[in-house]
Design a protein around this nucleic acid. Structure first.
Lengths: 160, 160
DNA sequence: CGGATGTCAGGCTCACTGAAATTC
DNA sequence: CGAATTTCAGTGAGCCTGACATCC
């Protein structure tokens, strides 16, 4: 019904001066563009960003339940199901019932999954560089630090 | 089918270390939170962010066609229709056929619309402060500058 | 019992596309 | 004719909720 911030529509003309430097607006537009770049890049490896998130988390924590993986990645429990399905189809993870607690599934990265993660990692790093292309190295770190602090603040205030 | 970055799911546990500082991911999460704050704030004034964008652009440029307004705000031509409908219903703008080019409509801000914009402007400024709450004044400017440069880079490369 | 877990079904918003009607 | 403008209808992805069966 309603909606529609566009990139195409803004190619020609300058947007309003006051609008152009609104933080919330810039964040939305940059996030959209970053998402586009990441999705397009990962699509060429038949992957999605949640594949990457799940594999990274699994690789760091070792085998965990889906609920635990959900907490670590930020992917909803309900949506995690199909993410794990896709990763299992491709042979990157294995889903097995937990003998100690039969409500749970234990998700384990396979050797193939680890190899895939390594390649994804390189690609993701390149894509981050594309996103931050106009900034120098120290500026990128500055931006990353500032974003991390903003993010942590909002995470905390939400965890009440 | 697929999807689901959540806030609620991450309240308890720490997300993965490598994931936590990924720029594209932080941008997505902060943009989501900023959008939430802005939408909730504007909702209390029976407004949406595109109302604000359209009013700001109209106030700066004077009466323009919908196509021109689309270019200045970044709102899709097709979605701009309902935005103008809502603003016209509330008496903030007027839509009249352009006598010089009968394909176009000329959109004009009313006196009431200008008053509304003033109040929105104050609210939006407060909301930006909420978004950037953990940062000092100079840090906010630093972040704004960095974001502006990143954004401009991607706008340019898309305008090819 | 209360609470956690995995799963499925759906809702709602939003960026985006396509096409039709009108006018230049 | 081709191109621009307004409008409407619809798609697909992402975030999120609710409910159910199972098990602690």
């Amino acid at each position: 019904m309603i909606g529609g911030m566009t990139w195409d529509a803004m190619d020609d003309h300058q947007p309003s001066a006051r609008l152009r430097r609104l933080p919330s607006r810039m964040l939305a537009m940059i996030a959209m563009q970053a998402d586009r770049l990441v999705n397009e890049g990962l699509a060429q490896m038949d992957a999605r960003k949640w594949h990457y998130a799940a594999l990274v988390a699994l690789n760091e924590s070792g085998p965990v339940s889906q609920a635990e993986l959900s907490k670590r990645t930020g992917i909803y429990r309900s949506d995690l199901v199909s993410v794990i399905n896709e990763l299992a189809e491709r042979g990157f993870v294995e889903r097995a019932p937990d003998p100690a607690d039969r409500r749970r599934n234990v998700i384990t990265v396979t050797e193939r999954g680890r190899g895939h993660l390594e390649r994804l990692d390189k690609l993701i790093t390149e894509l981050q560089d594309d996103v931050l292309a106009p900034l120098t190295r120290p500026e990128r770190e500055q931006l990353t630090d500032l974003l991390a602090r903003v993010l942590e603040h909002h995470s905390r205030s939400r965890a009440s």
